[in-house]
C-alpha cells in the first residue's frame, strides 16, 4: 500500500497530517481523514469562491503553481471549510493503478479486498488529492479519467464492478508548470478534464502576514524576508525559474525566531537550497547583505 495518511498519526499545530504507512490490511476509517482544526490560509484572489463553486458543480480541479505557494494549505483549508475528509496521494513514477484503486490482500489464509485511497474518497464523498500528478506514469494517470468527466464513476476491474461517486466526492490534482524539463508533461486528454486554479506567490504585504502568522515572528522581520524573497524572484531569467517559495521564507523566519542570526538563517533556507551556481550564490549573498544588517 502506498503512503496514506494515518489517522492515529500526530497532527502538528497547523492541522496538517503527517504521512505514515498504513497498518497492514486495515482499512482506514474515513473519519481519520477529517481535518479538525481550521488551517490558516490567506486568500490572494477568488480561489476560495471558485473552489466552492467547482465542488458544488462536481468539477475536478487542478491546482497550478510553483512549489511552496500554498496549494496544499489551500486545499486543507477548503476541506475544513466544506467539512470534507481529505485523502492525499503523493504521486511518483512507480505509482500503479492498484495503489490508487485498491488490491486484494492475502490475510489470515483468505483474500480480502482493500480499497485504495481513490476508491475510499469516491465511496465516502471525500476529496482525493493527487499531489504532483505529472510524476506518475501515464498509464497510471488514466485511471482518473472516468472520474474527471460527467460520468463520475470509478471502474474497479478486478472486482468487476463500477463505483459511482458520492455527491461530495471531489478530485483535485496539483501541477507545477515551472519545470523546464521537456520529458515530463501532462497529456491534453488528462489536462482537459480539470478546472485550473492558478497559485502565485501573494502580494508582499499579504505574504509578510502569512510568514509572520505561521511563525509568530516579529512582523518587521517578516517584511524583510518577503522583500528578500521578492528580489530573488525578480532574478527568474537567470536560472532561478521557481524563485523562492513562501515555505522557505517560513523556514527562515522560524530559524530567526529561535535566535539564529538573520543573515545565516536566510542563507541556509532561502539561497543555498535554490542553486549551486557560484555566480548566482554570490549575487544572492549580496541581496541578503543588503536586506539584513
Amino acid at each position: 500500500m502506498g503512503p496514506v495518511a494515518d489517522p492515529s498519526a500526530h497532527a502538528d499545530a497547523q492541522g496538517a497530517h503527517t504521512y505514515v504507512h498504513a497498518h497492514r490490511g486495515e482499512e482506514l476509517s474515513i473519519e481519520g481523514y477529517r481535518i479538525l482544526e481550521e488551517p490558516y490560509y490567506c486568500a490572494t484572489r477568488d480561489e476560495i469562491d471558485l473552489f466552492e463553486q467547482a465542488h458544488r458543480l462536481k468539477m475536478p480541479v487542478m491546482l497550478k503553481g510553483p512549489t511552496g505557494s500554498g496549494k496544499t494549505r489551500f486545499l486543507q483549508h477548503m476541506a475544513y471549510r466544506l467539512g470534507l475528509p481529505l485523502i492525499t496521494v503523493a504521486c511518483h513514477e512507480d505509482l500503479t493503478a492498484s495503489d490508487l484503486v485498491g488490491r486484494y490482500l492475502f490475510v489470515d489464509n483468505e483474500t480480502r479486498w482493500v480499497d485504495g485511497p481513490l476508491t475510499l474518497a469516491v465511496k465516502h464523498g471525500a476529496i482525493c488529492y493527487l499531489d504532483e500528478l505529472v510524476e506518475a506514469r501515464k498509464d497510471t494517470t488514466v485511471v482518473i479519467h472516468p472520474l474527471g468527466d460527467d460520468r463520475r464513476v470509478l471502474p474497479i476491474e478486478k472486482k468487476g464492478h463500477i463505483v459511482e461517486a458520492d455527491d461530495d466526492f471531489m478530485l483535485v490534482v496539483s501541477f507545477n508548470p515551472g519545470y523546464q524539463s521537456i520529458l515530463k508533461d501532462l497529456k491534453q486528454s488528462t489536462r482537459q478534464r480539470f478546472l485550473a486554479l492558478d497559485f502565485v506567490y501573494p502580494e508582499k504585504s499579504v505574504e509578510a502576514e502569512i510568514v509572520a502568522r505561521e511563525t509568530d515572528t516579529d512582523p518587521a522581520v517578516a517584511v524583510r524576508l518577503v522583500e528578500l524573497g521578492s528580489m530573488i524572484r525578480n532574478l527568474r531569467d537567470h536560472g532561478l525559474e521557481e524563485g523562492v517559495s513562501t515555505r522557505l521564507m517560513v523556514y527562515a523566519a522560524r530559524l530567526i525566531a529561535q535566535g539564529v542570526p538573520a543573515r545565516r538563517a536566510a542563507e541556509v533556507s532561502m539561497t543555498m537550497p535554490l542553486t549551486d551556481d557560484p555566480d548566482m550564490l554570490a549575487t544572492l549573498r549580496e541581496l541578503i547583505e543588503a536586506v539584513f544588517e
Partner: peptide, 27 residues
C-alpha cells in the same frame, strides 16, 4: 515563453554553464 530561455550574465562563464543548463532541461 517565460520558461523557454536563459540569459548568461557573465559571458565568460558560458562554457561551464552550458552543460548544467542542458542537464536541467532534460532531467
Amino acid at each position: 515563453g517565460v520558461n523557454g530561455y536563459t540569459v548568461i550574465q557573465n559571458v565568460g562563464h558560458l562554457p561551464t554553464k552550458l552543460p548544467r543548463i542542458y542537464r536541467n532541461l532534460t532531467v
